[in-house]
Nucleic acid binder design. Structure first.
Lengths: 132, 132
DNA sequence: ATCGATACATACTTTAGGGTAAGTACTTGT
DNA sequence: ACAAGTACTTACCCTAAAGTATGTATCGAT
């Protein structure tokens, strides 16, 4: 109707959000489905490319390498390639990446607790449906 | 939980990942661009729908309501609607949602530190009330 | 009588993320 | 001779997520 959606430039708003909201900031760095998983596996130390692949069987090679490159350009991991054949490439957390440990561990802890609580409520729901 | 048998290798792998990887689990709940931001704003207490809108100017109404509903069905927030006109609807963290405080604060703290190190933008310090 | 405020709903379109499948280069093992 | 292992790269496709733009219900206020 007469309502003119006045969301001026959404880019402007996004800029504003990025300036003021740290959660938005971290989402730009570790958002997406795979990045936290990759980082989580790197918490236990330097890993070769194929070690990561095997540790995360559901990821495709394209996704793995793509996100590794993004993490590298965001200075969260370091890529070290030894000039040998066959290739020997390792990925290691930078100090900034290491500092994500607190975040990732907090995530994992929450997940473990929540999945416990949730399986309880699932059982409750099953019981409830059986009682109807 | 027993994995659902599936012909697809990918689905099987995803099931495996979900079973074994808590980080994957939490990504299913708070993954995506907007959810952590919404949850972060709810840390400071119950908010009306429009309060959230104004707090997150970059989000569209569709995204906001969509994610609020998902968060509700994942038992992370509670929606309470007073039967009045004009509508009065509030969103509050559940106990499970409250437990995300550690995760979200860790995220925010990391973001502030990292952005300083990158000397991009100096953020204002987090609202102290969020840290209690 | 229309307006504005609230809290949504919904049809449509666009975009970005992710998946599939194939190829590359180089060398050791059989 | 050729397969196997390593660490990628690239072209193509498909879907799910996100954005755009509207509509809806109700009431008091102007």
């Amino acid at each position: 109707m007469t309502a003119i959606k006045n969301e001026s430039t959404i880019q402007e708003n996004k800029g504003f959000a990025l300036e003021k909201c740290p959660v938005t900031y971290i989402m730009e760095k570790i958002g997406g489905h795979w990045k936290p998983i990759i980082l989580y596996h790197l918490l236990s130390g330097t890993k070769r490319y194929n070690e990561l692949r095997r540790a995360i069987p559901a990821i495709t090679e394209k996704m793995l390498i793509q996100h590794l490159k993004q993490l590298e350009s965001d200075k969260l991991v370091v890529r070290i390639a030894k000039p040998v054949v066959p290739p020997y490439v390792t990925y290691t957390l930078t100090p900034a990446g290491e500092k994500l440990r607190k975040v990732l561990i907090a995530m994992a802890e929450w997940a473990i607790e929540d999945s416990k609580d949730n399986s309880l409520t699932i059982y409750e729901n099953i019981n409830a449906s059986l009682l109807q």
